[in-house]
Amino acid sequence: MSADPTETARVVVYAKPGCHLCEDAVAVVAQVCADAGETWREVDISGDEDLMRSYGEQIPVTFVDGRQHDFWRVDAARLQAALAR
């Protein structure tokens, strides 16, 4: 991974293609971030051995401001609260 995605987005979702939980999480993150006017980014971990080793069993993994926020599911209200801090 060349650049730290947390430097370019407030919310980062680590995911991989074909993951239905990832699709659900991305939809929630996209909506919450759009409503809050915040930036977000999805990172495909399938091509990165280190990320797969770290997060492969927990995806989707959501980070807010560089800190792990959630994994497996994203709760919209909890994400909204984290972005309001």
Rank of each mutant, 00 (worst) to 15 (best):
D35C: 05
V29F: 02
P5C: 07
R85S: 12
A25D: 10
I59R: 11
A76D: 12
R73N: 13
W40F: 04
V26K: 15
A9H: 06
P5M: 05
T8M: 09
C19W: 07
Q68F: 08
A84R: 15
Q58G: 04
P5L: 08
A76S: 15
R78I: 07
F63Y: 12
E42K: 11
L83H: 12
W72L: 15
A81F: 09
D65N: 10
A3Y: 14
D50R: 07
R85D: 13
R10Q: 02
R41D: 13
A15Y: 04
G56R: 00
A84Q: 14
E7L: 11
T8C: 11
D75W: 00
T6P: 03
R10A: 01
D70Y: 08
V61G: 12
T6A: 10
A25W: 03
F63C: 09
A84G: 14
A34C: 07
G56E: 09
T6F: 00
Y14C: 00
Q31G: 01
L79S: 12
V28I: 10
T39C: 01
R85P: 05
A84L: 14
V74Q: 06
Q80A: 13
F71S: 06
F63E: 02
I45G: 08
A81Y: 10
V28D: 02
V43C: 12
S2T: 15
I45R: 02
A30S: 03
D75K: 09
V28E: 01
F71V: 03
R53M: 02
V64F: 07
A15L: 07
E42M: 07
M52K: 11
A77M: 10
I45E: 03
D35S: 07
G66R: 04
Q80P: 05
I59Y: 03
